[in-house]
Amino acid sequence: MDRAWHQIALDVLKANEVRLIPYVPDNVLKPLIAAIHADPFFHAFTVAREEEAVGIVAGAWMAGTRGMVLMQTSGFATLANVLASLPCAFQIPVLLMISERGTMGEFNQGQAAVWRTMRPTLEALAMEYHVVTRLDECEFIMDRTIQQAHLTQLPAALVLSPLLTGGKPTARQVVA
């Protein structure tokens, strides 16, 4: 049987020695978060804000430990200032894994609105990012993006499309 996207993500993180995983949770990321907590290779923990996690991963990398921040689209939207002034300015390969909410059947209007800011922000920061949509491309994209970030000492983002993860199931409106 094919490995699920979260198993692939776990394997790729391990193969690239990405150990430190601070995160603010997201429903879609649940299986990945659970698997990372279950594996003693990783040090995973929640933080109060995504900004904090960017600082932690930046500090850890400068001291020799690789890390990645997990978040959802709304979390990414809180980050433009710290991304610009810390990993972009200092050339630090902070990795972001973003569960893409707000599109393809989103029921939450706030999520849908903030979704529209994600790509323009990534583009404006000139950050390398890839949207993973297919299981058969998942390993290649994740592995190469992580490798390139470390080789070039630049931050990068992996966006997990609902096409890959199934997204969060739409809550069907019940009209009485």
């Binding site: 430190l20 900004e51 932690i56 930046a58 500090g59 850890a60 400068m62 430990t65 710290v82």
Partner: peptide, 13 residues
Amino acid sequence: LAVPIALGVALAQ
């Protein structure tokens, strides 16, 4: 972010 950066360094070393 001074504290989070320092926390990252402290965890790494």
